[in-house]
Design a protein around this nucleic acid. Structure first.
Lengths: 338, 338
DNA sequence: ATGAAAGCGCTAACAT
DNA sequence: ATGTTAGCGCTTTCAT
């Protein structure tokens, strides 16, 4: 026995329009009528069909998110922050992930579009620019997080990757380390590229020439950090310290160092990008560049909702590129001289 | 310029029924017609409006999930596994969290119901039984994960909590520890309760009397683990080892032990429920009860989808209660005698 | 093989 | 203050 707005109307002996008004708290319903309708709703255990409402209103009160892989700390903190802000504002979350694969990202973008989400929070792979432009042109709002898209200007919330990396490497230099390696991620991503830039800037400031043998480019995965640290440490020409440009690769590198049997910070100093709760429990505690991940997600979502609800916000505007600051957390993995 | 099925029909010079048939790969469309329609779709960059389709079909191809807090490892592994299986089967994910608060859980259940999800994966708080029954009665499928609901029989995928806890504590006893404490979670949850039962069984098997001063009940949060370990270790009457019944509380306890300045396993042995990647990098590496979290989520989702797609599956069936096995991973935090 | 038309459950413009 | 009705964009039955 289905119960729709019509059955409620019949039960309360009013029109469906009146029921709709009550449901949506619209003005212009006599208190007595409202009570009557509310009673019918409760008696019949009626529950709005949002699908019908969404169709009619051309609004779904849903935000789509596309992240890489929710198993990685950055991504699930983002998921949490988006969810919090969305919930607070009455939006639902349609969760998808791209596995950082442009093809899957495109599929997910199309799914979200077909489902007529009101807006999208996207950690972009860097491709699919045409389609993203099409989505925006169609009136669906998008805010990018973490990474920008090469050469294009979309609203973005990110951290100051270049400066964060600079501070990390500059700190290593200050500790007395000279031969410093970097393990960074895909240079097609702003995170991979900018963190490398920061590394190079720091070296350059101290007049240390760039050494290609000390620069490793991975793919931001645990496994890749593990392989690359072994490449760096496996031969005689070995760095004194390494800056690893994200958390997953840092963990892979730590495991690698342990497997090789070297000690931190004596044999090798290490500093990671992105702090995590357990940094302090590791042996030794790891120095990291802490980024305000939750704030990235919450800021992006707040911006997105503002764009959704205030549609004349964009007209003629230049895109909002918001860069949040990182901060260095100094622990024991970078104490060269005790 | 909106583009709907009507514009495609006009462009291709066919009826909207034919366009619909092409979109849905229905038989009975001449190849030549199909081509024509496909061309129109591509020319106009048409994209199906799933909201309309969902309304008409009374099916949304969407699975709702309600977890506690995606920041905790268990929950985001669940999110990942549900997402993987859903994606593989063409379902979308509507993500919500309850914060383990029954009231919020009820709100989320209602949201999911209003949005007419085809099924729900729920990590239940243990309350809201009436409403859950109503949802099921209305034809929306539900599979519980991790916890059952006291005294009720719903389809559930969980781990063998009692045996996992038993093995942990029995192992501690075998290591020579006698005075063993437990930090468990809310006893209204099956996870909190069954893990305590396992602890008691193990003691009982070794004829060690239950000692209420060694039994602490927290709420599964990091903070609660931190507070309770300090209570246990703060006075003279202090246990030799502790079994902590989930990951977050274990981490809180580890931090607490470090704060107090005691060493593991010399001053205090520790074993946690739920393994994690970094266990091996800690000082010392932590012995844990490993649970197949991903498998819990994927099994639950597969079951849910089967129920959604095979609606005569339930008739007269007894509920499926699936318990997966845990396994003990022995590391250095429980070596009493070296 | 294709088309016409009803209707999914709701909202909103218009009428009373 | 309340009711009537069109229509959101699609699928599906029935006719042709």
């Amino acid at each position: 026995m289905k119960v729709d707005i019509k059955s409620v109307a019949k039960e309360a002996d009013v029109s469906i329009a009146t029921v709709s008004r009550v449901i949506n708290n619209n003005p212009g319903v006599r208190e007595k009528t409202r009570k009557k309708v509310l009673k019918a709703i409760s008696d019949l255990k009626y529950e709005v069909n949002s699908v019908a409402s969404n169709l009619r209103q051309k609004k779904t009160n849903t935000i789509g998110i596309i992240i890489g892989n929710i198993l990685s700390q950055f991504d699930h903190i983002i998921a949490k922050s988006v969810e919090d802000i969305a919930y607070k504002n009455g939006y639902n979350i349609l969760l998808t992930s791209s596995d950082n694969d442009p093809e899957k990202e495109l599929k997910q973008l199309k799914t979200l579009k077909s489902n007529r989400v009101d807006g999208i929070i996207l950690a972009p792979t860097g491709k699919n620019v045409d389609y993203i432009n099409r989505i925006i042109a169609s009136g669906t709002e998008i805010v990018l997080i973490d990474r920008q898209i090469e050469g294009l200007q979309f609203d973005t919330v990110q951290v100051d990757n270049e400066n964060g990396a600079f501070e990390a490497v500059d700190f290593l230099l200050g500790q007395g380390y000279k031969k410093i390696a970097i393990i960074t991620g895909d240079l097609d991503t702003t995170t991979g590229k900018k963190r490398l830039d920061g590394y190079l800037n720091a070296l350059s400031k101290s007049s240390i020439p760039k050494d290609d043998k000390l620069i490793k480019v991975g793919d931001f995965t645990n496994k890749s950090g593990n392989i690359l640290i072994k490449e760096l440490l496996g031969n005689v020409y070995r760095p004194e310290a390494v800056f690893v440009s994200n958390l997953d690769m840092t963990i892979g590198a730590l495991i690698g160092i342990k497997e090789i049997g070297l000690t931190i910070p004596g044999d090798i100093g290490i500093i990671g990008f992105d702090d995590f709760e357990l940094s302090q429990l590791l042996d030794p505690p790891i120095t990291t560049v802490n980024q305000p991940t939750y704030k990235v997600g919450s800021t992006a979502t707040e911006l997105l909702i503002k764009k959704i609800e205030d549609s004349n916000l964009n007209i003629g505007d230049t895109p909002n590129i918001i860069s949040l600051n990182t901060n260095l957390i100094i622990r024991d993995s970078t104490r060269k001289f005790r």
